[in-house]
Write a protein that binds this DNA or RNA. Structure first.
Length: 274
DNA sequence: CGGTGGACCTGCTGGC
DNA sequence: TGCCAGCAGGTCCACC
């Protein structure tokens, strides 16, 4: 479900809602997520600790607990983190419930259970197995067109698969990869070794532009994505190609095509993307 | 060695 | 109406 804009939207919500609150209880209803949750360890890690800040790295959320502890979340394809007044009953797929006093709780809900919640510490973050091999943040200063071009050296990968490689650049998932390539007028199956500097500049600019625009619209809600307040995003109204097979391209009216790359759908205009 | 394909899960949709 | 195939926003790892 969530790519960088959705995770960033959730981060902002969590930050508003949770900072300064103290976790008073944790309930594990389903421990078998992407990684098995050790209920005792989670309890020991979190209960009685105050949330000091909420960060994002790639598609991970880092909920910092005083002192020096972190809850590392990933939402997988279908995960949600919802914060609000305590619910009267548990919904199906509400796997983890964090109580913060009598008036507030956070629920981790995830039908497909590809998500994860890992207790860790600030000291372990730099070498955390889930974080250490991640590439650059696309909205950071370090993400430049020269960086992208250098990463593509000696690779013949299709540019779409290259964009979705988290060891190169993080946060770009299936929706925003297609959208970025549309904006950059690049065909998703084009091998990266045939791109020229002008293409790398266009691609770099497009990735940033698409992600920032999507953050500004609070993400894309195709079916079920909602933020930590339960609000849908608005960027689904601004998608040019994703999910639009057979519809006319906004630039030239040619039919949007769908192809499968590495098992995932890619959408593009065969006329203006070369 | 880089790159692809399957595995991990549940739920929804569309065709028959 | 029911059943089944195919598809879904992510990531890892075995295997060419």
């Amino acid at each position: 479900m969530p790519e960088l804009p959705e995770v960033e939207t959730i981060r902002r919500g969590l930050s508003q809602q949770l900072v300064g609150r103290t976790i008073s209880a944790v309930r594990v209803r389903q421990a078998k997520l992407r990684h098995v949750v050790d209920a005792r360890a989670l309890h020991e890690h979190a209960v009685g600790r105050t949330i000091s800040r909420v960060e994002r790295r790639a598609k991970y959320l880092l909920i910092h607990l005083q002192p020096g502890r972190v809850l590392l979340f990933h939402l997988g394809m279908s995960g949600r983190l919802r914060v609000g007044a305590p619910a009267s009953e548990d919904a199906k797929h509400d796997h983890l419930i964090f109580q913060m006093g009598a008036d507030l709780e956070m629920r981790f809900h995830d039908p497909r259970r590809f998500g994860m919640c890992l207790p860790t510490t600030v000291a372990d973050l730099p070498n955390h197995p889930r974080l250490r091999s991640l590439g650059e943040e696309p909205l950071s200063e370090a993400f430049t067109s020269d960086y992208l071009r250098a990463q593509a050296k000696r690779s013949r990968k299709p540019v779409k698969n290259f964009l979705m490689d988290a060891a190169v650049v993080v946060g770009v998932g299936n929706i925003y990869a297609s959208e970025s390539l549309y904006l950059a007028k690049l065909r998703p199956n084009r091998p990266v070794d045939c791109l020229r500097p002008v293409h790398w500049t266009r691609l770099h600019d497009s990735v940033r532009q698409v992600l920032q625009a999507a953050i500004d619209k609070h993400g894309t809600s195709l079916s079920d994505y909602v933020d930590s307040n339960g609000e849908r995003g608005e960027f689904q109204n601004e998608l040019f190609v994703y999910g639009r097979e057979g519809e006319p391209c906004a630039r030239d009216g040619h039919r949007i095509k769908r192809i499968v790359q590495a098992g995932r759908s890619s959408f593009y205009c065969p006329w203006c993307q070369r």
